[in-house]
Each structure stands twice: as structure tokens, then as C-alpha cells.
Design a protein around this nucleic acid. Structure first.
Lengths: 229, 229
DNA sequence: GTCGGCTAAATTGTATACAATAAGCCAGCC
DNA sequence: GGCTGGCTTATTGTATACAATTTAGCCGAC
């Protein structure tokens, strides 16, 4: 707990952002207990601001908050995982279509840099960072569509997806097939709304199919595990 | 500030819920300043819990929170109003379709009671309560679809719609044409997903068209109003 | 008479103290 | 030996105290 790791701005948004980043990059595993005093000492702030940050994260479903029991990194159930991707399926394809009509060269450059950075991170072995950049790609598309409200929803869904991937990832071969993102980039550059919508729809289906959402081995193993032994 | 009006449970969710209800029923107008001490005294809790409640409402965009400047009931811009209804257009029609496949007689009864209560409230002159019940109808449909995640989004969007209606309502004739809701109820009862989706889509379009989202007379009248006089 | 800065009041931001609740632990009992 | 009971500790819930910031009003200078 050296001084370098603390002494940042004391506002709760910074703390929430740092925690969210750690969750997003899979440095904080689902189920990890987040004790207020500990977090506060790490960031050099009091419990007051830590509590505000945790409540913020709980509202985004990144953290589970039980009364008198404290906060933990959320463990989405299989049902919740399905719901998140169903919501994304409703929002993102049509949003990609809207984005295609508004994409500027600057947007293309930014998306391309995301793909490049993701590629670099993957080859550097930093899968967490790659995953986060992959999510940023989706958020960026919602931003290009100039829809703040939908962008906020997508941002939350992408963050929750990161937790879902941490729990239910199965197909370890192609971590984040940037192929799909590259194809999307092309459709956006060509202002081809039809293709963008279809590509996004297919991409999300691919994502879901890369998860193991069949049985219940993940979070609800409290009882099952105890009975199995 | 009699004792009857305070002395409820001191948790922030209760306070947030009470405030949200007041906003939803148009008893708290957009732009109203929410001073922490005042709210705390009204509900008989300390600023700590009031702050938590306000942050919660701010996350739902029902309240605007500016650093060192406090909280106010949000004043959605025209742009935000459009975005909210665009998001609803993406989420609700398809959700109504899903709901139609799962609607039970108990669901029908509950929806019917919402329509009836809305009718009663309207004839009793309680437009605020009618508006809230009208919103509950939409939320109930998302709940029937058994989609907690989408339901949470719809809940937030309905609440924000209430603020938008407070600011931009124009067509005063048919307050909440329960005709549309009644038709939707029929489609759900018949498990007619196609009709439910179409009816919901049309209903949302009607809602938007009943608003005056053209010029900028609403919230940004800070400068315009001053210049006009 | 108006503009500028200065002071005071009000309000929010943060930390800490205390109370309440839950979890862990040891002892005693069946 | 295992279980139950109360005690201890750790952690959260809430209130309050203090610091920082904004806001309003006022006085003085130009």
C-alpha cells in the first residue's frame, strides 16, 4: 500500500471507474468481496466515497450489494447472461445501422485504432485489456450513432458481458475474433446500414454461442458443490 | 413537518422511491432544486441517506447532479426526449411480442386492473396518478416477458418519459388514450405476438407525436426567454 | 449609478464516530 | 463427538462534525 497507489482524486467516480476497469479486465474475479475499508485504503479515500462508488457499480450490476452483508463483484446467473445478450440483440444491430449513416473518417480511424490496440494487447498476452478494447468497439459504435441514452445502456451491457465472459467463456480458441469487428468497420466506412445491422446481429449471436450457458456450474454452486462432495 | 410525514424506514431506497414517485406523478416539477437538508428533514433521515437516494435517482436520469451545486429534478432536453423514445422503440415492441407468448390469465387481470385504475384516476382528476399507472402498464409488459434486464431499462425509460411529458406535452385532448392499451391487452390475451409488436410500435409513435419536440421552448429557455423580453 | 471585489451565509464534499448487524469462535452441554 | 449457546470481532449503516465551495448581499470605488 505505497503512496504511489493511492493519493488520486477522492471523488467516487474515479474509484468506481478504477474498480470497473479492474472488473472489466478480469483482474477482479466475480464473487470477490469488496470490503469498504480495504478499498478505501487502497485508493486513499474514506468509506463515504467508497460506498458511493460501490452503489454506483451496483446500479450497473457490476457489483452485488446485500444489506448488512457488503459488496461483491457480481456473478451473473445464466439467466442473466441470456438476458444481457438478448437486450444487446435488441439495441446494437439497429444502432449499428444508424451509426453507418453517420460514420465519419475520424470515427473510422478511432475504430481502427481500437482494433489495432486490441490486436497488440492480445499478442502481448494481456487478454483482459484486449477484452476491454473489444467492448469499447461496441460502445464506440453507439457513440457514433449519436445516441447517448442507448450508448449508456450498451456501456452497461458490455460491462456486464465482461463478467459473463469471465464466468461462462468456453471456446478458448478465438478470443475476440477481430474479424467480425473488421467487417463491421468496413460496413460503417461504406455507410452500408443493412450490412452493419446484419453483421452486428451475427456477431452477437457468435458471442452467445461461444459461451457455455447450458447447465448450472457457475455461480449457483453453493449448494450443488456442497452436495457433490 | 409533522411526525406523520416522517419516521419511515431510513433506507435510501425508500427515499429514492418516494422522490421518484413524486416526480413520476408530476408533483415535483422538472428543475426543482432538491436540497439535501430539506429532503432529509422531510423524510426524517440524515443527509447521508439522502445523498445515496439522490445518486440513485441521478443514475436513472431523474435527477441532475452537479458537483458542488447540488441536485435538481432533471429537465430532459428535446434531444434527450427523442433518444428516450427511440430507445423505447427498440426495446418495447419486440418485448411485447415476447410477452404475448407468455401472458397468463393472471397477467391479463393485472393489466386490466391497471387500465381500470388509470381510468378511475383520470376521472377523479388525478392526472399524475393516471400517468404513473399508464407507465406501469408498459413496465408490466416487460415483466411478463420475463426479461429483468430489459424491464429495468424500460422502467428507467418510462420514468424519464414522465419528465418528458411534463415538459413537452402538447396534445391535451386524449391524456392517455387507454384505447391503445386496451388493444394491446387483447393482443396479449390472444397470444398474438405480431399484433402486440405492431400495436406497441404504433402506440409509441403516437406518444412521440403527441409531444412538441420541434423548437426549444422548454428547458433551454434560460437565454432565449431573457432575450425575448 | 454601476461594476468590482469582499464578506457572510448556505450548501455540498469528505471524514470520522458511533450504533447495529452479521460472522467467527470458543465453551459448555447433551 | 457434535451441536448449541453466548461472546468477540469484523463489517456495514447512519449520523454528525468539519472543510471546501458556491452563492448572495453589501459596501466602496470609479
Amino acid at each position: 500500500m505505497d503512496d504511489a497507489s493511492r493519493a488520486m482524486e477522492g471523488n467516487s467516480e474515479t474509484v468506481a471507474g478504477r474498480l470497473a476497469l479492474a472488473i472489466h479486465e478480469h483482474r477482479l474475479a466475480p464473487g470477490t468481496k469488496l470490503v469498504e475499508d480495504e478499498v478505501g485504503e487502497i485508493f486513499g479515500v474514506s468509506r463515504t466515497v467508497v460506498r458511493a462508488a460501490l452503489q454506483q457499480l451496483a446500479h450497473d450490476r457490476l457489483v452485488t450489494l446485500k444489506r448488512n452483508r457488503g459488496a461483491s463483484v457480481a456473478q451473473p446467473t445464466i439467466r442473466e447472461a441470456r438476458e444481457v445478450f438478448e437486450a444487446r440483440a435488441l439495441l446494437e444491430p439497429r444502432t449499428a445501422r444508424s451509426a453507418a449513416a453517420r460514420t465519419t473518417p475520424a470515427d473510422i480511424a478511432r475504430l481502427q485504432s481500437h482494433i489495432d490496440e486490441e490486436h497488440d494487447a492480445l499478442h502481448a498476452g494481456d487478454a483482459g485489456r484486449a477484452l476491454r478494447l473489444s467492448g469499447l468497439f461496441h460502445i464506440e459504435i453507439a457513440r457514433i450513432a449519436d445516441q447517448d441514452t442507448i450508448c449508456a445502456f450498451v456501456t452497461q451491457l458490455v460491462a456486464r458481458s465482461s463478467l459473463i465472459i469471465a464466468l461462462y467463456w468456453q471456446r478458448r480458441n478465438a478470443l475476440c475474433e477481430s474479424h467480425a469487428h473488421h467487417a463491421l468497420l468496413r460496413a460503417l466506412a461504406d455507410h452500408d446500414g443493412d450490412s452493419a445491422e446484419e453483421l452486428m446481429k451475427g456477431h452477437l449471436l457468435d458471442l452467445v454461442s461461444s459461451l457455455d450457458l447450458r447447465n448450472l456450474p457457475g455461480p449457483p454452486r453453493t449448494l450443488a458443490e456442497a452436495l457433490g462432495r
